[in-house]
Simulated assay, not measured.
Amino acid sequence: MTPATARPVPRPPLPWRGARYRLIAPNSPTAPGIVREFLGTLLRATGHPGLVEDGRLCVSEVVTNAYCHTRSPLVRVDVTVNPRRVTVYVTDDEPAALPWRAHTEHVPCGEHGRGLVLVEALAARWGTRANGDPVPRSKSVWFTLETAP
């Protein structure tokens, strides 16, 4: 009898349809602010003013996590924009530990530990993925914001 193995859960790729944009920034204390401004400007310029504040907050939280929890020299931000949705991938070069969202009841009252809780609350979808096969070389945290129908 052949042993059964679980198939990995498919990871969502960047959407094929839409305009693509990329920003590569040094993984430094200034990166969250620079990326936040980049995404805000991009969303206003591409006709998504209603997504600006949620997008800025989500990308700032994810880039801050990369800065605080990795030693990756660079952070890459890939954005795909189409008329209905915006998908953002934040990639760093430390695939070892994929980030996880603490359950809301376990989130401390302090300033730390709520980034992915906020992303989950604001995004239509979000997730993580290790990049590279068979040995991961980087990881991405992604989220999708959708316009109201």
Rank of each mutant, 00 (worst) to 15 (best):
P3W: 08
A4L: 15
R7K: 15
P8S: 12
V9Q: 10
P10A: 15
R11V: 15
P13N: 08
W16M: 15
W16N: 14
R17D: 14
G18K: 01
L23H: 03
I24C: 13
I24Q: 12
I24W: 10
A25R: 10
S28V: 11
S28D: 14
P29T: 07
T30L: 14
E37V: 12
L39F: 00
G40E: 02
L43F: 08
R44P: 00
T46W: 04
H48G: 03
P49N: 04
V52Y: 06
G55R: 00
R56M: 11
S60G: 15
V62W: 00
V62A: 05
V63D: 07
C68N: 15
S72W: 02
L74V: 10
V77H: 01
V79E: 02
T80A: 14
N82H: 09
P83R: 04
P83F: 00
R85N: 12
T87W: 05
V88G: 09
Y89Q: 13
V90H: 01
T91Q: 07
D92K: 08
P95V: 01
A97I: 13
L98S: 11
W100P: 04
A102P: 09
E105V: 13
H106L: 13
P108V: 07
G110F: 00
H112Q: 13
G113S: 03
G115C: 02
L118G: 03
L118V: 13
L118E: 09
V119M: 06
E120P: 01
A123S: 06
G127S: 05
G132T: 07
R137W: 10
K139S: 12
K139Y: 00
W142R: 07
T144M: 09
T147E: 15
